[in-house]
Nucleic acid binder design. Structure first.
Lengths: 230, 230
DNA sequence: ACATTTGTATGTTTTTTAACATATTTTTAT
DNA sequence: ATAAAAATATGTTAAAAAACATACAAATGT
């Protein structure tokens, strides 16, 4: 039943590798596994965190509702990574919503158990500190680029970001995530029309190739140049 | 010599109140006090953090250089608060610069000493986790408002933010920080011209009153409405 | 005290991007 | 299989904000 969750906790690469067997067992006993279909909401802005959510399989977008309900994607999660841990550790309700963009499996570690173990494991606490600090750096960067770069620069950066986050297919060029034009727009702070238009322009300039939702990067250096120039 | 620093560590309200006398002494011994004049740079993007910087007196702006050197203020610090702790805990070089906007006093706690004490004090670690998590929430919020709100909304929000952060003078209306129009623009993601113009418009609408760098909020509710509408 | 620089103010033009309109294609539901 | 809905595509118009220009005031250095 909970195999997917147990794998995460046992994984040698995970932050839980610093725990002893007894602690790991305790975490496993106090965690639940949930399956989500594509487009399912995992949590909504305003909800109260009940535990540490870990993405075991799938892909998830984290987004905020802005002016007039306009959506801004603030993060894209991949396995194995935490979701919604910011609100949990800030002891706040969620300030963003999470939605599966592919069928996904998540493991939720019960809050009190986690905090109990956290008290005795400074290494675990350090890795959470490092994680939050890194994400804060990323967020501040995003603030600047989303406000200062022009449409082409913002879109180019988003494509590079998606490639960095999810990697590429076997052809070593096709970005390994299949977002709607609307999601690409919401990630890049532009309207859907402009995302579609600018993707088309990039394609006509042979910087990328489009095939439905597949985006193949043909000129990586060119894309980097567009992103840097703004 | 180091009295200003010692005060911070001894302060009952500070995060260090959870430490015992011995630990506090150790921190004091390994911290240095530095005085900065208005417009002095405390650190620059790319510098390596040498310790935990605590603002004891004064006011400091944290900003990033964006496209074409355009400045974006990402945070405003007040006493008693930490500066540059994100980079320190992410184990990265600074991704932003810090500049005193008033004469300021800072206390730098040496890195290794801090981490040593952090290992044995989960409460201290927790308060850093909470701090980073809160600031990340703030940063994500800023990303959305700076990208989605229109000029009037962005400026209104900035004025409310400055009031929240630094409070008001004895008249209960004048914001207790005196920024240049350029800094207000760099905080609000707009050109200096537009900051000046929009401040003038607000003044003509009797929402604020201007007297040099003094900004007096006349219609708080009105300002909130403008900020919310975007 | 004066020149020089820096900051503030405001009008005009141009660029960028959102908003709108309308096809066309693809997906989904029945 | 077919209708309905959703997603994609592209052209046009309108609005927002940057860029530019210029004037004036205040602060600073000599």
């Amino acid at each position: 039943m909970n195999i997917e969750c147990h794998n995460i906790i046992d994984n040698q690469m995970s932050v839980f590798s610093v725990l002893n067997e007894e602690e790991k067992e305790l975490l496993k006993k106090n965690s639940t596994c949930t399956y989500y279909k594509k487009n399912d909401i995992i949590y909504k802005e305003g909800d109260k965190p009940s535990g540490l959510i870990c993405l075991s399989k799938g892909k998830v977008k984290i987004f905020k509702e802005g002016v007039g309900g306009r959506e801004q994607i603030v993060r894209m999660a991949k396995p194995v990574g935490f979701i919604g841990y910011r609100a949990l550790f800030a002891e706040q309700n969620y300030l963003a919503s999470a939605e599966a963009i592919e069928d996904s499996v998540i493991c939720t570690i019960e809050k009190d158990t986690l905090f109990k173990i956290l008290k005795t494991n400074y290494e675990l606490a350090f890795s959470i500190i490092r994680s939050l600090a890194s994400e804060l750096g990323f967020s501040n960067n995003r603030t600047v680029t989303l406000t200062q770069k022009h449409i082409r620069g913002r879109l180019a950066e988003s494509l590079l970001f998606l490639k960095d986050t999810y990697g590429v297919e076997d052809d070593n060029a096709t970005i390994k995530v299949y977002l709607s034009r609307e999601d690409i727009a919401n990630l890049s702070n532009m309207t859907t029309s402009n995302a579609i238009r600018t993707l088309s322009t990039f394609a006509s300039e042979k910087i990328i190739a489009l095939d439905g939702r597949k985006i193949k990067i043909l000129d990586f250096k060119g894309l980097e140049r567009i992103s840097e120039l703004g």
